[in-house]
Every structure is written in C-alpha cells, then in structure tokens.
C-alpha cells in the first residue's frame, strides 16, 4: 500500500545541501498499523509529506496506493486521509459541520453516503456537541477528533498521521488510540503514524519503523525491537539508546536496511 524505494529529499539551505531523507526504503502492506519513530529532525515529517504528495522526492521512488504522490496528488488525495497533529486541516473560521460539508464537496461524496458516514463518525468520535462551533474555538482534543473525522469522511484506504496525539491529555489520547485501532480493525484501513509518544507505539503499532538522520535505523515488529536489548530494559530505554545511536543490533547492522 505504501512503498518507498531509496527515496531521498534534499533541501538547499544557503549554499549547503541538507539531506532530510536519504535512501529510505520500506513498504507497508494493506491493513498494517505502522508506527514511525525518530528523534526531532530525523526526517519523519519529510517522509510523511512525500507520502501525501506535498513534497516531491529529489531521488528514489515513492508509491502510495499504487500512485506517485507528487505527480498524482489529487487522485491520491481521494484515497488517503492525512492528519497533522500540529496544525488543523480544517477551515479555521468555519463551524466544524461547514468544514465537513466542504470536504464532501471536494471529495464529491454522495449525499446519502456522506450522511451515514458522518453520523457514524460523529457517534464514535463524539462530535455532536460541537459540530456548530467554529474550529478556532475548539479545544485541542475536540479539534483533533474533528480532524480525524475530516480525514476519514471519504473512507480512505490509507490513513497517515503526523503526531496525532501531540499535546493531548490522557483521556483524549486514549480515545484517539481506541478509535484508530477500531478503524484499522473494522475497516482494514492501513495506518502509518509518526509519534514521540511511546505509549502510542505500545498500544497501537504491531510494527515500528525508526528513522534517524534521514535513514532507516530499524524496521521490524515491536517484539523484534525489544529483543535487541537486555530483558530488563523497557521500550523507553531501547528507543533512547537507538536515538543516541548506541544500540548495536543483533545482526550487527541496522535492521531492514537492505529491504
């Protein structure tokens, strides 16, 4: 469903060329739930943006749902849902319901199908109380639920989330996690999310992709990741050591680098 083949993206900063992402290869199959980890500035967001067609890769190949994101951006938009935790994709000044209506128009969703879908999302995400509230007046938790609904109205095959739980309180976080698991389990939606919250990874992700300095540093199941470290360490210790570049993996090199 998602394929990166030696994908790279460079930026020119003043006269220097910065490799935000280089030679990144991994694939995500339909129905998987994958967490993407990495320290700040590792290239997670750049990767996400290449996957949704916002950024054009400077090298390599990217395919999402069989499409080249940067060339078939609008076609792809019909098949994926995207959520940015740091900023809303909703219209700031419009009530949530109007934002949804705009999304319906843009995605050309049938009215009946839209109503059914919205009713379902309103119910599972508990949006009823603030559908008429302008987005700018929503709390962060409410806004994130609105954003999730907006990303799923058109029943996408793939859901890509960039730090969806950032800044949320425990209750909101738990609600979002439960919802994501349901979407993945009940509708078979492929989910890729980036996060700094290891709780997200533990609760949600069967598979972890770790990016560091723009390269793949680990790719495997959560169990594999834990197996690289002594038994007494918890996930936080393991990830901390990986971020610091100290971890020596079982096979002596970064796992999955040749995938």
């Amino acid at each position: 469903m998602i394929e990166l083949d030696r994908a790279g993206r460079t930026f020119k900063v003043r006269r220097n060329v910065v490799h935000a992402v280089r030679d990144l290869s991994f694939t995500v199959s339909a129905g998987e739930f994958v967490g993407c980890l990495g320290p700040n500035g590792a290239g997670k967001s750049t990767t996400i943006k290449m996957l949704c067609g916002i950024l054009t890769p400077t090298s390599g190949r990217v395919r999402v749902a069989g499409l080249d994101p940067s060339r078939r951006r609008t076609a792809l938009a019909r098949r994926i849902g995207v959520v940015f935790g740091q900023r809303t994709t909703l219209w700031w000044d419009l009530p949530l319901a109007d934002s949804f209506e705009l999304i319906r128009l843009l995605h050309k969703i049938e009215r009946a199908a839209f109503r059914a879908r919205l009713a379902e999302l309103t119910d599972t995400l508990d949006l009823g109380a603030f559908l008429r509230t302008p987005v700018r007046q929503l709390s962060l938790g409410q806004r994130m639920r609105g954003d999730l609904a907006a990303a799923l109205l058109h029943a996408p095959e793939v859901l890509v989330l960039d730090e969806p739980t950032i800044g949320l309180d425990v209750v909101s976080k738990a609600g979002i996690r439960e919802f994501l698991l349901r979407v993945n389990a009940e509708q078979g939606t492929t989910v890729l999310l980036t996060t700094h919250d290891l709780g997200d990874v533990e609760r949600l992700c069967r598979r972890v992709v770790l990016i560091d300095h723009g390269r793949l540093a680990f790719d495997g199941t959560l169990a594999d990741l834990m197996a690289t470290a002594p038994a007494h360490e918890d996930i936080e210790d393991v990830v901390t050591r990986l971020y610091k570049g100290e971890a020596v993996l079982a096979d002596g090199g970064p796992a999955g680098a040749d995938q």
Binding site: G53, I54, A77, R78, I80, F84, Q86, R87, H154
Partner: peptide, 13 residues
C-alpha cells in the same frame, strides 16, 4: 503559517 500543506492534501487543485 504552514497552512499551504492542508491545501495540498485535498482532492482539488
């Protein structure tokens, strides 16, 4: 403002 991204993830030009 970083709001251009949101225009690029919608299925319209």
């Amino acid at each position: 403002d970083g709001t251009l991204d949101t225009f690029l993830i919608r299925p319209a030009g």
